[in-house]
């Protein structure tokens, strides 16, 4: 019984998808408008000058670099920690296993404002100063689950037989890790890393709590938030929004193509 979808269903489904995508296109359109004070539609004129203006604005580069730096460090930390948990969880049954899986999901399951204020009130207790390192601290915490989800799905698919075969053929634990485990995990870790990078690069809620006050800990999303609240040269914000969009869009697309052959596909849960 495979009946065709009815027309109202098709239209509703397509309308739903369009609803998800059309708003983003407007960001692109408004990057070319000549109107820098309001959001007049249709734009009174089109220009490409805002790309040059954005390029020369000195206040955009440091946040961009900081965001890349934070995303890179958070991703690396999450890759190590997430892979370790995935290896432990897939190999053995142990006391507290279910609780641990809950603990991994918690930073992303609870609203960001809770993770944020929890870290905000804990960091001074540890006598740490707010800065880019504390931003990484927060980001890595919620990126672990992304890497873990990708890695644990791959571990599940990997048969234990090849690890035993490697040991039988005389490889030690490190050789097995280097020559057997890592090549098999490779794409899953890359996909997880990409998603973690995208998530960290664009995170704003936890960041507003864990960042310091100075310009030195202003990430690109925080810069954007400031522009949204106190706008100046609105099209420049659109140009930056396009950059942010591209920086997250490409890794996500790559993560999808890296894992789509498998039974597990990256990105089905955030």
């Amino acid at each position: 019984m495979r009946s065709e979808a009815s027309w109202p269903l098709r239209i509703a489904a397509l309308a739903g998808l369009l609803f998800l995508h059309l708003p983003i296109l407007l960001i692109f359109l408004y990057a070319f408008t000549t109107d820098e004070r309001t959001f007049t539609f249709p734009p009174p004129g089109l220009t490409t000058q805002w790309f040059a203006v954005a390029w020369n604005r000195a206040d955009i580069w440091p946040p961009l670099m900081l965001s890349l730096q934070v995303a890179l460090f958070s991703t690396l930390l999450a890759l190590v920690l997430g892979t370790l948990v995935a290896a432990a969880m897939s190999g053995a049954r142990f006391f507290g296993r279910d609780q641990l899986s809950l603990l991994i999901v918690l930073p992303i399951a609870l609203p960001g404002v809770i993770t944020g204020i929890a870290l905000r009130s804990a960091i001074p207790m540890l006598h740490l100063n707010f800065g880019w390192q504390t931003i990484v601290l927060g980001h890595a915490t919620f990126c672990i689950v992304i890497v873990y989800n990708n890695a644990v799905a791959r571990f599940r698919r990997l048969s234990g037989g090849i690890l035993e075969a490697s040991a039988d053929l005389g490889a030690n634990a490190f050789q097995t890790f280097r020559y057997i485990l890592l090549p098999n995990l490779g794409t899953a870790l890359l996909a997880g890393g990409m998603l973690a990078f995208a998530l960290s690069f664009d995170e704003v809620i936890v960041t507003t709590f864990t960042a310091g006050t100075g310009a030195a800990s202003k990430t690109l999303p925080i810069w954007m938030l400031d522009e949204l609240i106190r706008p100046r040269q609105r099209p420049v914000t659109n140009v930056v929004a396009m950059v942010v969009f591209a920086t997250t869009f490409l890794p996500i697309l790559l993560a999808y193509y890296l894992t789509r052959e498998g039974s597990e596909t990256a990105g089905s849960g955030k």
């Binding site: 960001i27 664009d202 954007m224």
Partner: peptide, 10 residues
């Protein structure tokens, strides 16, 4: 997965 702030801005 795409940027939360960009979506809000849109």
């Amino acid at each position: 997965w795409s940027s939360y702030l960009v979506k809000v801005y849109a």
